Amino acid sequence: MSTKDSSGPFHGHYTVLDDKEFQVKGRTLFFVVILFTVVLLVTVFLLYARWVCRYRPSNSPFSSHAPNAPPQKPRGLDAALIRGLPIILYQSSGNSEAAGCGECSICLGVFEDGEKVKVLPQCRHCYHSDCVDTWLSAQSSCPLCRTSLRSNSDDALQIVVQ
């Protein structure tokens, strides 16, 4: 009696195995090709964007400066104008202009008696000379209240300061 028992050991050769379960059908192949194409396009786009950012010429439409744009005015004040700001000696008690100021709002250092303090003409705020000179070389406004120290012309401001 020879009956086939499926619970017994497998006696066969590996070439006889049926591999229909491992076939790639049309729909699966379509999705694999689409996925590969999307990954490839994204990679190419990212490489192109990196190249554009790194090697773009200065006259390209993506550059930040227009070729015929007028040069920008410096944001800070002229050095002569900064030197012309009044300097007073700080006194904590007395009728000094800087008596109401207690500390430099740039460096947060407390003013000591006899220390040189610069007073801005428009707003009367006080600062250490070195602190406000550095600030005004880059900015043209009071560090505390942002009052502009520029007027329509720098000559008019020089007259106000002197």
Rank of each mutant, 00 (worst) to 15 (best):
K4S: 08
D5H: 06
S7V: 12
G8T: 04
G8W: 00
V16M: 13
V16P: 03
D18V: 07
D19S: 09
E21V: 14
F22A: 07
V24L: 14
K25P: 06
K25I: 13
G26Y: 10
R27K: 12
T28M: 04
V32S: 06
V39W: 00
L46P: 00
R50K: 14
W51S: 08
W51M: 05
V52P: 02
C53F: 08
R54Y: 10
Y55E: 11
Y55F: 15
Y55M: 10
R56L: 03
S58P: 06
H65W: 15
N68W: 15
P71A: 12
L77D: 05
D78W: 07
R83K: 14
L85H: 08
L85D: 00
P86G: 02
I87P: 02
I87L: 08
I87V: 14
S92F: 06
G94R: 00
S96I: 04
E97Y: 00
S105T: 12
C107G: 12
E112T: 09
E112C: 10
D113L: 02
D113T: 01
K116V: 03
Q122E: 07
Q122L: 11
R124W: 09
R124C: 10
C126R: 02
H128S: 03
H128A: 04
D130V: 05
T134C: 07
T134Q: 12
W135L: 05
L136S: 03
L136P: 04
S137W: 05
Q139L: 05
S140I: 02
S141Q: 09
C142N: 01
C145W: 07
T147F: 07
S151W: 10
S153T: 15
S153C: 15
A156K: 15
L157T: 05
V160P: 00
V160G: 00
V161A: 04
Q162K: 12
